[in-house]
């Protein structure tokens, strides 16, 4: 479904992690880079990528074109990704966080904010890599939030990893992070471009634009997709202010949720007291004439 050579995809506690180039045999200590794609957009998933490469081969990544994925055109990105796949230098782990899941986390009673989601997802990928028996010599992470704090948190979570570097713009500084960003970004673009779920009206399929609120194509798609009763399809992140504002502007129906029924486990008086039957239930006509039922009549 993703095109190219997906080596393995498997379920980890109900979440899908896709591993690219699983068949390659990594030997010796490795460097790992982690970056994300699709943090800001109002449409589509956020994708987390981790790239793994043997320490002594990492110099060759730059030659293959690994850099900040945002600085490249879409075609270039895909070309670099294909080259990385063919080179058998990099094993990439990617995790997709769907828009619906992000909305749910951020809008729940005790919000699970995007930074916390990001940190936990990155840590999840590292755990997955370690589980596969890979020895991590140095972990490079593009920061989310304050780099120093994030780094301390990661060190605490992974005391066995010798070196951890968390930095701003790590994707352009470290080639291995650039590789991670390319895998994440190309996967996200691919998912958004071919997005097609049953909750979408046929007329709404395609033309999503980049998914960022600044993209006129995305905004025009959102305006077509909004429904005053049903809101947006699952592709849209409900927790983003762009979608909230658009709902208000459309005159979406306000819903008041009634308080939860506190009488849900309440029993009924009729379970205990039975309706009276017999004489007292006879119609007025019979009562007035002092008539009563006689079972021996027939």
């Amino acid at each position: 479904m993703l095109g190219g050579s997906v080596g393995r995809s498997y379920d980890n506690d109900g979440d899908w992690i896709v591993v690219d180039g699983y068949s390659m045999a990594l030997s010796g200590p490795c460097v790992v880079g982690i970056d994300e794609a699709g943090r800001g957009p109002v449409l589509g998933p956020m994708v987390y990528g981790a790239a793994v490469c043997e320490v002594d081969k990492q110099d060759r990544l730059r030659d293959l074109g690994c850099d900040d994925s945002k600085a490249m055109s879409e075609q270039d990105r895909e070309a670099v990704r294909d080259r990385l796949r063919d080179s058998s230098l990099v094993q990439a782990y990617t995790k997709v966080l769907q828009a619906e899941e992000l909305s749910r986390c951020m809008l729940r009673k005790r919000p699970y904010n995007l930074n916390a989601i990001s940190h936990d997802t990155a840590a999840g990928l590292v755990r997955e890599i370690l589980k596969d028996g890979i020895e991590i010599e140095h972990l490079y992470v593009d920061t989310v939030g304050i780099p120093e704090r994030y780094e301390i948190w990661l060190r605490k979570a992974f005391p066995a990893i010798k070196a951890i570097t968390v930095a701003k713009k790590a994707d352009s500084t470290y080639a291995i992070v650039g590789a991670a960003s390319i895998f994440a970004k190309t996967l996200r673009d691919h998912i958004l471009r071919f997005w097609d779920t049953p909750d979408l009206h046929p007329e709404l399929r395609g033309n999503y634009g980049s998914g960022y609120p600044g993209d006129p194509a995305t905004i025009s798609w959102l305006k077509r997709a909004v429904d005053p009763h049903f809101g947006f399809p699952g592709l849209v992140r409900f927790s983003w202010s762009t979608s909230k504002n658009l709902l208000d502007a459309t005159g979406a129906v306000q819903v008041e949720f009634e308080e939860e029924d506190s009488e849900a486990n309440q029993s009924n008086i009729l379970n205990h007291f039975k309706r009276k039957t017999g004489k007292e239930q006879l119609p007025k006509y019979f009562l007035d004439r002092r008539l009563c039922e006689d079972s021996n009549f027939l």
């Binding site: 486990n265 029993s267 008086i269 379970n271």
Partner: peptide, 12 residues
């Protein structure tokens, strides 16, 4: 007054 009890178990 008679009041039916709440059903045990699913205390929310």
């Amino acid at each position: 007054y008679y009041l039916a009890p709440k059903i045990e178990g699913q205390e929310s």
